[in-house]
Design a protein around this nucleic acid. Structure first.
Lengths: 216, 216
DNA sequence: TAGATTGTTAATCGATTAACAATC
DNA sequence: TAGATTGTTAATCGATTAACAATC
């Protein structure tokens, strides 16, 4: 399907293409040229064509790209046409916010379990999903076979649980703890979020003379 | 002070250096070589030396870098030695979580105001800071002179408020809304977070054959 | 057919890595 | 002094941009 290996830079742009195509669709666009899309997204037309051609030929010479069709293609590439079962560890402030704020289904996931160690909140529901005790992890993993875990627990707890989670079949981590999760298994993906780092770069830009604007 | 302009890739690595140096300090390290640090961070020694040398000569030949001193230098570069006043717009799930979860003071900021339009929650406190009505924005801006705003409001509201905020002196946005904020003012910085995009890349990696592991 | 715009190859640019002289 | 490791220049690698033939 895909030619060779796709660079990280390309992968990171895919969700953004998907979002823009969705907006275009909403605004009634049927077709768009790479030049037009480039203008809207602050990229170059060349880059957009190169990016798309990593995955196939989605356009038509002389016409451009069909917005709806291209959106479906990129959604498929991102795996948004399937729903991967996913669990959340840690229902503190951040965990709760993630659970209620993120539209999992539109990102290719289905939240099937939330876990915490605090007895006071076990049984509470966040959206559709009840908070379970960590003891129930095995049971829920067997029932739903989650392949992805969100880490919103303290970093000590996270480093302790990670191996167990991999044993249980978790193959991707969305890591919000304040440390860089690194995993030796070659088939396990990690997305370290680090909101603190993101904020610190704003501090840099406010305090250094030459400001950078917009998206990187 | 700094030679010419610093690339975005370097800027994004600075907070990570800062974090690792903090951990090293905690673990009793007094000195470290670029080689050792590279190993711990998953970078190359060359890259580390190149990065640091964008800002000055912080090491010593034959010895390496003094951990505590280097941490202070990088903190200074990031502007963490000052506290920039900052406001939060939107005290919904995500806004609340950000306000209570982020350690602002260690990232160079001080949260001086939280704003929402929901009368039911105005007056409530999140940590030390009370939630104010949007009407009080002018007043609080005059009192505290915030230079940075966190956007945790719906995107329609955000695009409406942005110009007003720039008028009030805001020069940086930490944008959590589901759209890419782009600003024409050259002296205004934007950090678009897009948690949804981050999650979608995990979907990609789970669904494509060749997995990428660890940090990019 | 003529005009537009893609897919793709070639050229450029920038970032990372390697090498090494300087020096602690 | 000898060994270690930096700061910095040169080489390499990869990603972005430009160009253009193919084609709708």
């Amino acid at each position: 399907m895909s030619k060779n290996t796709i660079s990280n830079s390309v992968i990171r742009r895919l969700p953004r293409y998907y979002r823009f195509l969705g907006e275009l669709e909403t605004n009634g666009y049927v077709r768009i040229s790479s030049r037009e899309l480039a203008e809207k997204m602050g990229l170059t037309a060349s880059q957009i064509r190169q990016d798309f051609n990593c995955f196939g030929e989605f356009g038509q010479q002389g016409y451009g790209y069909n917005v709806a069709a291209l959106k479906i293609e990129i959604g498929r590439i991102l795996g948004l046409d399937k729903l991967t079962p996913m669990i959340l560890l840690g229902a503190g402030n951040l965990g709760r916010a993630i659970a209620s704020h993120i539209n999992f289904e539109s990102k290719g996931f289905k939240l099937v379990g939330i876990f915490d160690t605090n007895p006071a909140i076990i049984g509470d529901k966040i959206g559709e999903v009840a908070i379970s005790d960590m003891d129930e992890l095995d049971e829920i993993c067997e029932e739903y076979n989650p392949r992805c875990a969100i880490l919103c627990i303290p970093k000590e707890a996270a480093s302790k649980e990670v191996d167990r989670l991999i044993d249980k079949g978790i193959r991707a981590f969305w890591n919000f703890t304040h440390y860089d999760l690194r995993i030796n298994h070659s088939d396990v993906s990690v997305e370290n979020v680090h909101l603190g780092d993101s904020l610190a770069t704003l501090s840099y830009r406010l305090n250094s003379e030459s400001k950078t604007c917009g998206n990187d």
